[in-house]
């Protein structure tokens, strides 16, 4: 990780010095354990603030939307896939970007770390595949694979799909992954069980919209939940309004979601919101053979018509 960080800083400093870019978007060290803050370096001196570790789970593509500058951006696998989606959707232009690709080895789930030490965490130290957690209750060392964000455990695109320069050799991609076990479990439920499952899942939702706002796909100038003439969705935390918000938001991400996990990571009340987008990801893969953000040369399935598109649902 430290090698990555040195390389990121060196590339960023060079780009800024040579005026190749106006700014570089990356991460700086957070003020609390396991949290880093998205950061913009505008001078070569500021690039020493750029860091990289296993707590860079926020999707930086979120910070590109409609920017006009020339931008250097640090991108792990999922960020790069969202950059591709952003370019395809005209939210940024390819030649505005200098993509600093980071082969990713997965981001750590701060909730799993907290569970491992049963509460407060003072410090988290990474050493290769081992993570040492220091807390008031003592130290504990865990294997990184056991505390990864769920989306990272299921990730098949750790290496950036688009980049101008890599900070290291690509890492081996994970194979033999069953990415959709959780979705199949719900698909197998009967209707009443599904309803009960979704109601319980969304019961804690406080409608803070952290999931939506952390998502690089959610860039609509006015989100449907914020429309008020007419108002489509109630503003209270009524169960029906909560479900309407989450279902509809997920559908808007169909064929676009890269399962970067930003939504789930951001949720302050720990709702596993990826279950919705995961289902749509599975459908897009099964129906259209599509995974989002792999290439600039193919249009997403929901904005092209192909004669062989499945249409069994139409009577």
């Amino acid at each position: 990780m430290l090698q990555y960080q040195d390389k990121i800083q060196a590339i960023a400093a060079r780009l800024l010095k040579e005026c190749k870019v106006d700014l570089v978007i990356g991460f700086r060290r957070g003020t609390v354990p396991m949290m880093n803050e998205p950061y913009v370096a505008r001078t070569a001196e500021q690039t020493t603030n750029l860091i990289w570790d296993s707590h860079c789970g926020i999707n930086l593509t979120n910070y590109l939307t409609d920017r006009k500058e020339k931008i250097g951006i640090v991108a792990k696998g999922c960020d790069s896939r969202n950059i591709v989606t952003h370019i395809l959707e005209n939210k940024i232009e390819r030649d505005q970007l200098y993509i600093i690709g980071v082969p990713c080895q997965g981001m750590v789930d701060k909730r799993k770390i907290a569970q491992a030490v049963n509460g407060a965490v003072d410090q988290v130290i990474e050493n290769g595949n081992e993570i040492t957690i220091k807390g008031p209750a003592g130290d504990k060392t865990v294997t990184k694979a056991d505390v990864l964000q769920n989306n990272c455990s299921l990730c098949k695109h750790r290496n950036p799909t688009i980049h101008d320069e890599m900070v290291a050799e690509p890492v081996a991609e994970q194979t033999d992954i069953d990415a959709y076990e959780s979705v199949r479990a719900i698909e197998a439920m009967d209707i009443d069980a599904k309803r009960a499952y979704f109601e319980k899942l969304l019961e804690p939702c406080i409608r803070c919209y952290a999931c939506r706002n952390a998502c690089p796909l959610c860039y609509c100038p006015t989100c449907f939940v914020d429309e008020h003439r007419p108002q489509w969705v109630g503003k209270s935390t009524d169960p029906v309004d909560n479900m309407t918000f989450h279902f509809l938001r997920a559908y808007h991400c169909a064929g676009r979601c890269t399962d970067c996990g930003a939504c789930e990571r951001a949720c302050p009340v720990g709702i596993k919101v990826r279950i919705f987008t995961k289902k749509l990801e599975k459908d897009c893969l099964e129906l259209f053979g599509w995974e989002a953000g792999l290439s600039l040369d193919t249009r997403p399935p929901l904005d092209v018509y192909r004669p062989e598109d499945p249409d069994d649902f139409i009577k």
Partner: peptide, 27 residues
């Protein structure tokens, strides 16, 4: 610089014990 990272979600205000703003709605 403070605002750069902000995603404008309501987490801070909804979790805050001192934030008091409200919005009136008819249903």
């Amino acid at each position: 610089e403070v605002a750069f990272a902000c995603i404008n979600c309501g987490t801070c205000t909804y979790l805050c014990p001192t934030c008091w703003c409200f919005d009136i709605q008819d249903e």
